[in-house]
Structures are given as C-alpha cells and as structure tokens.
Amino acid sequence: MKHLEQQLRALRSSGRKALVPYFVAGLTPDWIQHVEAAVLAGADAVEIGVPFSDPMIDGVVIQEGVLRSLEAGTTLDSVCKDLSSLSTHVPLVAMTYYNIFFHYGLERAAGKIAASGLSGAIVPDLTIEESSDWRVACDAHDLANVFIVAPSSTPDRVALLAPASEGFCYASARMAVTGRAADEGDAKRVVGEVRAISDVPVYVGIGIGTPEQAREASMVSDGVIVGTALVQLILDGGDVHAIEDFIGSFRRAIDIAPVSA
C-alpha cells in the first residue's frame, strides 16, 4: 500500500473527516504561505494544482486562476522548486492534466514530484484505460494515483476505478466542471457505489463551496475537497488570514458532523 493511503486510512481510523483544499500553484507569489495557512487552520491534505493551458474539467474560477498562474510563468519545475520551501506535515497531492506529465516524461515527472514532497496525483483527463504507463511510473516512486468516480460511472466502471484508486478515491458530487453548485448533488450515491467495492477512503469534490455543503458531504464520506470557493477567495485578494478563516470555518463545520458509519 502506498504511503499516502496508509496516512489517509490512519486519519479515517482516528475518526477525523479529511479536509482537502485545492490551490492553484503559483497563483500568487506567496502561494506557499497560503498552503501553510490552510494547514494551520486544519487542512489534512492539500491538492497542488499545476496549471495547464486547457483545463477541460475546470469552471471559470479555476480557469482564471490557472491563466494568471501561467502568465506569472509557473511551470512544473517552478512549482517543485517553490515546494522545497514548504514545511508541512500533511500529505500533498498533485492535480494536473495529463499533458503536463506526458510532455515532461512520465518517469521523470513522477520522480520529480515525489522528490518535491508530493505523495499522490490526480490526473482528471487520464482515463483508467490509458493509465498503465503513468501508474508504472507512480509505482516506482511511491506516488498514489487517485481516480475520479463520476455520477455517470456505470457499475462496471466503478468496479474498475474504485480498486485501482490509491490514497483515496475522488467521488465527483455532480455532473459538472469545478465550481459552485446550489444542490447537494449525487455525493451520497457515488460514495456508496465506491464503498460497495473498495474500502479505500472516499472524498467528495465538485461543488463543495460552503461549510454547510462540506458538512453534508462529509457526513456521507471520509472527507471533502474544496477548490473553487478557495481559489475565488484568493483571486479576490484574500490573504493568509482570510484563508485561515475560510479553512477554519470548513474545519468546524465538518468536525461537528456526526461520525458516519
């Protein structure tokens, strides 16, 4: 079992729901301090978004964040260099599109991010059918490759994805790109389908924009991923204190959620 999954299983065993914020790496010069603020305020793991020019599954807010980061000159190498100044005890998971790793060289990319302290990766446009080369590279560097299960995933696909997902399984709460949503989505059903097949921790993302939504999603899962609302806060000029307040409000909301079965 990959190290990331051991950590996240231990977290679950401790009775704590995972709070996983997503940051666009390089969005501001002090983005590393933003990550540290989030950890201080109660994040259990952090998704490090490496910007790609064509973010197919991201909504307008993250698109804007990615564009700004690219304009500032962010690259995979610069992200890894920045991470060397990050001091944190929580696991870090890369989130980016496949071309970034493919172009860098799969083996070289896996080695690079592992050496920079990342222990997992989410590649939303890499289907399980095309993933074998990347997973070999991940295995060589103890990187956990996280798969996403969608509301549209058929039972035979859940049966492929859930056992293959390492670290945690990303349950997409709705059929939408990243962004805010009004409804609670399909989180409960999707998580249930994964749990019927695998005991890997299951985290809910896509459309978790408020502490209340996070609380509800955490009640049916092992953790929540918060991206767009946080990126919006930073795009609007939010500083480390604003980020601490933001993450703190999510922390409190999911900590008062009753422990689910």
């Binding site: 496949y98 446009d125 289907t127 059918e129 509301p151 549209s152 997409s172």
Partner: peptide, 20 residues
Amino acid sequence: ARGHFGEFGGRFVPEALMPA
C-alpha cells in the same frame, strides 16, 4: 479497440464523459 492509430488517438477525457 481503444481507438488508437499507432501510438496516437485513444481517450483522454474526464471520467464523467467516459460512459458517453
């Protein structure tokens, strides 16, 4: 069977679109 022309082609889409 997976849509490859030599080393090219295939499917690189979000899981949400795979069933479609």
